[in-house]
Amino acid sequence: MSGYTEKMRDIAGRLLKECAVDMVIGFRKGTMPMMNEPCFVTKPEDVQSLVWDSNCGINLANYLANRKEKIAIFAKGCDSRNIVTHITENKIERDQLHIVGVPCTGMIDKRKITGMVAGEILEVSETENTIKVKTSDAETLLDKKDVLQQNCALCIHRNPVIHDEMVADPVQEQTDIDRYAEIHKIEEMETEDKWRFFDDLLSPCIRCYACRNACPLCYCPTCFVDESKPQWVGKGQDPIDVRTFHLLRAYHCAGRCTDCGACERACPVGINMRLLTRKLEKDCQEQFGWEAGLSPDQRPALDVYKANDPEAFIK
């Protein structure tokens, strides 16, 4: 993905100069290693702040819902699928968007990298296939493919599914990926073990809702956990309330989740809540042959009826 930054600045500058769009949504360089900050640019002279590298894991589609401007947006494979979902769900008009496709070779996992080196990481730089990590007393060279966010390592839609122009030629899609090995493992556990597994998984949760808020799918004006009339769920740290939040959040993403990984990336305490959303993704895939956000012309699995829909669960 080296060289994308320059190309993006050119594209953004051109679109703003031509007044083709009111704003460009992208990333600017972060103040921390392995972090970039989503930002918008409205003036051609400001496009120099835009950057692209392997630290753009936040899903930019999240910044589109209900906006009224004409917007250019940089979209990785997953972002583009969430843009499709937004269009299908009437959160934004296709005509409002100029989608600049970004063929993606994956985002790196800052938590994993932090765990692989001793001491505080002061600087991280990258080439096409390697990641160089600098601490105060050592430099470590890592293979990018070993330190990808897990959702990127399992990704089978690296290229945007919808775009008006592309930053670069499409990249090779990954094949022979077993997306659900971990999910199968959980499915095979005994009931009690499953309960305990999720108790343990969710125990660090502080209910900051970063997972929900980083998710482009979570745009309800009032989330069910925030409702007070009626109040569906307790607001404290009771594990049942915590679990209710995570379970229902996952359900609300059923058939919509693109496994962009923004939730897991955003979590300040490192919970892999994708173990819940991916189970629902797997069910949608297996039972309805459905993958979310591949085309704005398809209606989602959960809002169509087909005569051959599976119904074994109805007794």
């Binding site: 959980i186 009931t191 499953k194 309960w195 305990r196 999720f198 379970l247 669960f313 109805i314």
Partner: peptide
């Protein structure tokens, strides 16, 4: 069921 509730506790019928 995936989360640890026994299969037979939840039923759906028409």
């Amino acid at each position: 069921e995936y989360m640890g509730i026994e299969r037979d506790r939840l039923h759906m019928s028409w």
